[in-house]
Design a protein around this nucleic acid. Structure first.
Length: 671
DNA sequence: GAGCACTGC
């Protein structure tokens, strides 16, 4: 008889049994607190098990017994799906049964679902149909400290809903630093009523619970004097770690693609001269612009005697977790988006990180054993950093979110209870645009049906207006495609290293003389007809298959909205040759002007553009067909300032007269 | 001649 061996007969568990997580000993007290207080703020580090365990405790304790469900929101789609799959496993059910998830295009829930994970943006959308979110007995807002625009809006909504639904339990998961802000927010009376008094000590409405995490100690090291060139300093630090420190992979935070590619190249060159006794160094890059398969390399196990060093953007701060990182190198900067309400231009600039970010980055070193974090700045500089990031809601274009709030019946935006109120200029800029688009009337009320419909379709306001005016230009089918293609955002064309030339020639095959929007339309139509929606076709034509498939889903969803509004969509003629292609193209360009009149510009003799609003100098982005081409008047989808230049992307030629036709009032005001 | 990261029944 063969000898019995445990090793060969048992497969090690993928994760530790829940009972071993520190959270298990807090079960009773957590349930007590949630029962007693309408709002509970949970502080738990990564590894505390809060996201996976709390919903199961609640389900077990009977919070779903009256047919209501437990909802847990996440800021990201991947998080919502992966956590749901894991909880279903622990719960012992098939995903979509008792435990499910719901994200855009993917509803994996059923009538038996009791624990539901979803993105916070989607829960806000549910509130449009069910304003009191009456299906839920408990709503847990996870990763609230990240302060995404949707999370902030959701928190304001929940505070409002709570007054009408005393039975609803709200759980906010937060990092230590921000817990007090959340407590204060939920303890204070709403700003829009004076009647409700603040609760007394015996009648507290919110409390904080702290859970232990499973992180390991991290040594933090600073520079004695600040570095002049942090990319070079980062590379040197990597070699110092490699030659002087024990085993373990390295994660380096830089700000963008260019820096990262430079660093990867430098490390692979210099690593060749390393003494063999130190072992090999394998540099890898990680940023969102990479294709999924290219991103996957950072998860591969390195060969024996090889140390992995990942140069990454902020994507590795919260969105992507790489196992085996023992050393973190932090340059101290991040590229951050901001919106300037005076010019209506978004900027993307490298800014110093916050203390919260620096701590989060350092924490990436201590996930499997004690680690070290090398900060490429002085301890004094750290002390001077802001405590937390400026919340997104205070530095974004608010037009989309104000449209949604109005549709939810929140007419007085200024008195809505925001955790961090947005600056008044951002609010008035958004109101101005929504008024110009016809979504709001002169009393700032949502118009019917246009405003309500614009709030409902899942594209930004200018495109929503374009889409909804398309029947008047007899080009709804085409605009649906263009809306879907611009929604996937800048990732339609794709090339491997050194294949840029090939991509340019591929792209030229789809090019339309009138500009980028019609080029998108050509690419999409050939993809769904001749390309038969196949990956092979995409590969041959330098199209991003993932992006194209997403465009197909978005288009189908947008089409369903229009049909619900009783708008006819005739796709049959678009697929075949239009009767008069030039006339059709003109209708499409006119229709685009009806939504994008605020994004108009005129070409100058030197090839740059001058914007109609503000008269600033604009450059066609090199990814645009209008780069190096002649035009007169144009409209564009997106505008962004990077470095010292303002770029416009997705550009289409128009005629001046169309602007006055589309928005006579707007142009009278700016003239 | 070039852009951080997310996201929407």
């Amino acid at each position: 008889m063969a000898e019995f061996s445990i090793d060969s007969n048992f497969i090690p568990a993928l994760h530790k049994p829940p009972a071993l997580l520190p959270i298990a000993k807090h079960r009773e007290s957590l349930l007590y607190v949630i029962e007693k207080f309408p709002t509970t703020i949970v502080i738990g580090q990564t590894g505390s098990g809060k996201t996976t365990q709390i919903p199961q405790f609640l389900e077990n304790a009977g919070w779903c017994s009256d047919g209501k469900i437990i909802g847990i929101t996440q800021p990201r789609r991947v998080a919502a799906t992966t956590v749901a799959v894991r909880v279903a496993e622990e719960f012992g059910c098939e995903i979509g049964k008792e435990v499910g998830y719901s994200i855009r295009f993917e509803d994996v829930t059923s009538s038996s679902t009791r624990i539901k994970f979803l993105t916070d943006g989607l829960l806000i959308r549910e509130a449009l149909v069910d304003p009191l979110l009456s299906r839920y007995s408990v709503i847990m807002v996870d990763e609230a400290h990240e302060r995404s625009i949707s999370t902030d809006v959701l928190l304001g909504l929940l505070k409002k809903i709570r007054r009408k639904r005393p039975d609803l339990r709200i759980i906010i998961s937060s990092a230590t630093l921000q817990a007090e802000d959340f407590l204060k927010f939920f303890s204070e009376g709403p700003e829009d009523t004076t009647a409700e008094k603040c609760e007394t000590k015996d009648n507290e409405v919110a409390t904080i619970v702290s859970l232990e995490g499973r992180t390991y100690p991290i040594d933090t090291l600073y520079l004695e004097s600040s570095a002049e060139d942090y990319v070079e300093k980062a590379i040197k630090t990597v070699f110092d770690i490699h030659t002087q420190e024990g085993p373990g992979d390295i994660l380096v935070f830089l700000t963008g693609r260019e820096e990262i590619d430079t660093a990867v190249e430098a490390v692979s060159e210099r690593a060749a001269q390393l003494d063999a006794r130190h072992g090999a160094l394998q540099p890898l890059h990680l940023y969102a612009g990479l294709s999924t398969e290219e991103q996957m390399y950072v998860f591969d196990k390195t060969p024996e005697n090889t140390r992995k060093v990942v140069f990454s953007t902020n994507i590795a701060e919260a969105s992507v977790t790489i196992d085996g990182i023992v050393y973190v190198v932090d340059c101290g900067f991040v590229k951050q988006r901001a919106y300037n309400p005076k010019t209506g231009i978004e900027t993307l600039t490298a800014t110093p990180v916050s203390k919260a970010s620096a701590q989060q980055r350092a924490g990436r070193a201590g996930r499997t054993k004690p680690g070290k974090c090398f900060r490429l700045y002085t301890e004094d500089s750290y002390g001077a950093l802001p405590e937390a990031n400026i919340p997104e809601i205070q530095r974004s274009n608010l037009a989309p979110i104000i449209l949604q709030l109005k549709a939810l019946g929140i007419d007085n935006i200024v008195r809505f209870s925001f955790l961090s109120p947005p600056p008044a200029e951002l609010v008035s800029k958004a109101l101005e645009l929504l008024y110009a688009l016809g979504a709001l009337d002169e009393y700032a009320k949502l118009t019917r049906p246009l405003g309500f419909r614009m709030a409902e379709v899942a594209v930004e306001p200018m495109m929503a207006k374009t889409l909804l005016s398309s029947p008047g230009f007899r080009c709804t089918s085409e605009i649906l495609t263009i809306a879907a293609m611009t929604s996937v955002g800048g990732s339609v064309w794709f090339h491997h290293d050194g294949e840029r030339k090939k991509m340019e020639t591929s792209r030229r095959k789809f090019a339309a003389e009138e500009g980028d929007h019609l080029t998108y339309l050509n690419a999409y139509q050939i993809f769904v007809s001749k390309g038969k929606k196949e990956p092979k076709f995409c590969h041959e034509n330098n199209l991003n298959y993932k992006a194209m498939s997403r465009a197909v889903s978005i288009r189908a969803q947008l089409k369903r909205y229009l049909e619900r509004f009783d708008m006819q969509v005739d796709d049959s003629r678009a697929a075949s040759r239009p009767e008069n292609p030039i006339e059709k193209a003109e209708q499409i360009r006119k229709c685009l002007t009806s939504g994008y009149f605020a994004h108009a510009a005129r070409m100058q003799p030197d090839g740059t553009f001058r914007s109609v609003e503000g008269g600033v100098v604009l450059h066609a982005h090199p990814s645009s067909l209008m780069f190096n081409r002649k035009a007169d008047w144009i409209i564009f989808h997106e505008i962004m300032e990077t470095g010292n230049k303002i770029f416009i992307r997705d550009v289409t030629k128009i005629e001046r007269g169309w602007l006055l036709e589309a928005a006579p009032e707007f142009y009278r005001l700016t003239d």
